[in-house]
């Protein structure tokens, strides 16, 4: 929005006239009804459950409805260790979610493999296969950390433009909505990472428009 329009809006609100844009209204509605998928992988899921209960009460942020089907979910919280045997299922669930969809990688294991990083069976971070919006470190992160991640995600949703080149992935017609599911190979998952998504050590990733 142009600066003079912003000033006009502030000026109007000073005089008791509330104005908004379609984009702001749209993002306001979306960020306050992010429905996560009922999906827990390991001990971080216990913290996620605690976050939704009365003491921490994620319902305050409009996320109390944990949907049991990916078709109805906006957000997948990858809470816990992703084993190589589970990784294809996680990617497939993500693929089945309708756009716009978001990912929170919760805990050391989900972001990097954590203490099991050198194990033969643990995926070293789910961001190898699907685009992650918010990473939370911690082993496990406290419910406050998850709430903070959730607020970060809300802020991110709030800043998404409806038009223009900087608009998010789900508004680009040619950006992918499904990501390739890794296959079980002879020595590990194939491919080991999706280079379209993964920020690898070359430092020059071909990132999906986020």
């Amino acid at each position: 929005m142009a600066d003079d329009l912003k000033e006009l809006k502030i000026e109007l609100s000073k005089n008791g006239i509330f104005t908004t844009t379609l984009e702001e209204l749209y993002n306001w509605g979306r960020k306050n009804s992010v429905w996560p998928l009922t999906f827990g992988l390991a001990c971080c899921a216990i913290e996620m459950i605690a976050t939704t209960m009365a003491r921490y009460d994620l319902a305050r942020f409009g996320a109390e409805v944990f949907r049991p089907s990916p078709r109805q979910a906006d957000l997948i919280i990858v809470s816990g260790t992703v084993t190589k045997k589970m990784a294809p299922q996680v990617v497939r669930l993500y693929n089945q979610m309708p756009e716009p969809k978001y990912v929170i990688a919760m805990g050391a294991c989900a972001i990097s493999g954590g203490p099991f990083r050198d194990g033969y069976n643990v995926l070293r971070g789910i961001d190898r296969y699907i685009p992650v919006d918010v990473h939370i470190p911690g082993c496990p992160p406290r419910p406050e950390a998850l709430i903070h991640a959730f607020m970060t995600l809300q802020k991110k949703i709030d800043e998404q433009a409806l038009r223009g080149e900087s608009r998010p992935r789900h508004l680009h017609a040619d950006a992918p909505s499904e990501f390739p599911v890794p296959e079980f190979g002879a020595h590990g998952l194939e491919p080991a990472q999706n280079d379209e998504v993964f920020l690898n050590e070359t430092g020059n990733p071909l990132r999906v428009i986020q």
Partner: peptide, 25 residues
């Protein structure tokens, strides 16, 4: 029982080396 069918290595053997492309420098 733990690894998938088609996996060829035996990961608890002492000379097992995880696939090279799997490690981040």
């Amino acid at each position: 029982i733990l690894m998938w069918e088609g996996f060829q290595d035996f990961p608890m053997r002492k000379d097992y080396v995880p696939p090279a492309d799997d490690s981040l420098a």
